[in-house]
Structures are given as structure tokens and as C-alpha cells.
Design a protein around this nucleic acid. Structure first.
Lengths: 208, 208
DNA sequence: CGCTAACCTAGAACAAGTTTCAGAGTTGAT
DNA sequence: ATCAACTCTGAAACTTGTTCTAGGTTAGCG
């Protein structure tokens, strides 16, 4: 008798290395998702359609991603990885850390503008996610943090104050994206907000 | 032949003053919603149940609030008004504007902690809202801005820089709430983030 | 008072996310 | 090669948000 390792979901964290065909299925699913999202955004990602597009039974789709939210958050992870790679290639040129972070985020923002529907689907999923998706959302958050810290180009480890600033920048980044996606803020507005919050980085630690 | 003023929704902004019975219905609906949300959060607010609890037909519920999201955002407006009133009573005591804003937000945060499920429902609805809810979400945003500006206790009109800071504070506030509600950040963490972002207020306007 | 447009109700119907299940198909270890 | 344990498929069922319909009720107005 074998202890069954994971009652359901495939591909959860470290365990089960995924066979080649499984890896291929997973990839097909994520690809189909991004494609559908790229058209109509969140609503256009319909589980039955994703399943059909990726040549997988509905039940299988749910085995790989236990909900639509999980699916979209995984898509975001995927895209973020891609973006981190892209951003890394050309480090930002600003004088101060604040400028470099702002520049990097604006570059990311411009990338999202090219696929606003996809951005919509991913960001809405991210903020709508409940506790059952926490690990995945956390992973996205860590990835985002890594991008920002990268952009800061620190000599040493970040101070606690700097980490706080980074968290606040992330908050602002997500929320500003949402206001833009729902048409309540202009691109210029988002730019200002990002530049504003980035000032926190180079602030002397006078307070506390 | 009469031009029908509003094809559907009752109570939209300025027009139609709402009869007494209608006002009562609206109130019953919002009350039932807050009650259900107070138990299980977003998922526990089921349209059929709201309709039943408030003694209104499902179709009528949809006439008053065209979607679950509209309903919850309206609930948030309602609660925010209440909170603004409560907060106004005891102005914050901090020395600087930053301290006063942080104190006010933490007070609001503690109020939300008493009804975490209700907070969950309202905040999730707010960030999940799409363009069709923009006017209502904007109203919530204005109300929040008013609370923050109130807490700052300005002598004159806010400067553009201050308005930027307030927007960023709002972003942080919403996003921090979400991370707390989904269990990815502790209360202490939220406190630090709020205090961090509030530093933006008293910042000299060196940049720009 | 009696009309008419707008409003309300009960309930069916529809849409999309999620669950379930029986019957193949794969896989890995022996 | 064989068996047991997983995994995948196809299809139906279930849940909850949303829409639609037919008929009764209300409010303002001539």
C-alpha cells in the first residue's frame, strides 16, 4: 500500500516531478489561458473553453488548477518570470534607487499596456484570490519583490526600512493597476503615483 | 408617449427621490447584506438569500442593485459614511499630519477587525469591480479621500503633492487590507505599512 | 373614481464555475 | 509481461449569479 502523496492536485510545489506529457499539458493550458485572457480579459477565460483549447478534459484542467483563480494566478507567475528575464537584460539607468525602481515599474507597465485584457484577467484574479490561493499569490509577491530589489541595485542586503518601502511600493503598484484597468485612472496618473511612492526608497530613516 | 427616464435601475444618483417604501426596501436589502456578509464574507452573500432576508423578490433586488458587486460596493458606501461620522467625533491627536492620518487609518482598521468577514466581502467586491461599477467605486474613493484629508487637518487646500500622497496612501490601504484579509500579512505588518506610507505626507517637495 | 405607467412578485430559465463518476489509458515496480 | 495505482476523458449534475416572463400592485393624475 502506498501513501497517496497529494489528494488531487497535480504539480503542487516540490513533489511529483511531472512527466513530459504532463508538463506539456500544463503548458498547453497556460498558453490557452493567456490567449483567451488576451482577448476578452477575465470573463473570456471560461474553464470549458480553456479545457477545449488545450485539448484536455474539464476534470483534468481542474486537477492541474483547482479553480479559475488558481489558473490565472499561475498564468501571472508564468508571465512574471518572463518579464523578470526581459527586465534583467537592460538594467534601468536612473541615478537613484528610487528612479531606477520607478523606471523599471513603468517599463513593466508599458508591457502590460500592450495586453490590457491579459493584465486585467491576471490582476483581478490576484486581488480576488482568497486564502486557498495564498501560497501561489505569495509566490507572485516574492517574484515582484525580487524585481524591485533587482532594480534598486543594492550593494548589500536591504534594510528593514527598505523592505517596508518595497512592500508599500508593491501595494501601490497593484492598486494603481486596478484603478487603471477599471478606467478610473489615466496612464499619467499611474505614472505619478508610482513616482510618488518610489520616493520612499531614498528617504533617510529619521522616523521610528 | 413618455420617455422612460432610467431603463431599469432604481435610485441611480440624482433622479427619482424614492418613495418611503422604496427607501425602506433599500435599507432592508443593505441590512441583510451586511448581516450575511458579517457571517461568511463574500461567498455567504448569496443573491437569493439577500432577497429572501430582505423580503424582496429576486428581480427587485436586481432592480435596486444590478449585480452582487454593486450591492457590496453600496454596502461599503453605507459603512464608510457611518465610519466617517464616527471618526469625526474624536479627531486624532498626533503631532504631524502623517501621524494623524496613520492613527485614523489604524482606528478604521481596528473597526474592520471586529467584522473581518464583512470587511472581506466589501473589499473583495471593491477591487473586483469592473468598469460597470466605476461610478460607485469612485464615490467610495472620494469618501476615503475625504476621511484622510480630514485627518490631516489642513489649514488650506491640499497641494498637488499632497493629493498624490493621499492617493498612494489609499492604494496602500486597500492593498494592505487585502493581504491581511487573505492571511498573507499580520496586523502588525499592516500597521508598519500604513506608517511607512504616511511618511510621504510630511515630505518636503524636493522632487518634480 | 378610474387610468396608466412604473413597480413588484413568484418562479422558470440560462450561464459559467465546480464537482462527480464510470470507464478507458498510462505508468512504474516487480 | 503483469498488476495495482494513478491519471485522463467525456458527460452529466449541481451551484449560484443573472435574466426573463406573466400577472398582480401602487402611485400619481385627470
Amino acid at each position: 500500500m502506498v501513501i497517496k502523496s497529494e489528494a488531487g492536485t497535480v504539480g503542487t510545489s516540490p513533489a511529483s516531478p511531472l512527466t513530459e506529457r504532463q508538463e506539456a499539458r500544463r503548458r498547453r493550458i497556460l498558453h490557452a489561458t493567456a490567449q483567451l485572457a488576451g482577448r476578452g480579459g477575465f470573463d473570456a477565460v471560461q474553464m470549458r473553453e480553456v479545457a477545449e483549447s488545450s485539448q484536455v478534459a474539464l476534470g483534468t484542467l481542474y486537477r492541474y488548477f483547482p479553480s479559475k483563480i488558481h489558473l490565472l494566478v499561475a498564468t501571472m507567475q508564468d508571465q512574471l518570470e518572463h518579464m523578470h528575464g526581459t527586465l534583467r537584460k537592460k538594467p534601468p539607468a536612473g541615478e537613484t534607487a528610487a528612479e531606477r525602481v520607478a523606471e523599471t515599474l513603468m517599463r513593466a507597465f508599458r508591457a502590460l499596456q500592450r495586453e490590457p485584457h491579459l493584465a486585467d484577467a491576471m490582476v483581478r484574479a490576484l486581488t480576488f484570490a482568497d486564502r486557498s490561493v495564498s501560497p501561489e499569490v505569495d509566490q507572485v509577491s516574492r517574484q515582484t519583490t525580487a524585481i524591485i530589489l533587482d532594480a534598486m541595485g543594492l550593494d548589500q542586503d536591504p534594510t528593514p526600512d527598505q523592505l517596508s518601502a518595497v512592500r508599500v511600493i508593491e501595494h501601490t503598484w497593484h492598486s494603481a493597476l486596478i484603478t487603471w484597468l477599471s478606467g478610473r485612472a489615466s496612464i499619467a496618473q499611474v505614472k505619478i503615483d508610482i513616482e510618488t511612492v518610489c520616493r520612499l526608497i531614498d528617504l533617510p530613516a529619521e522616523r521610528r
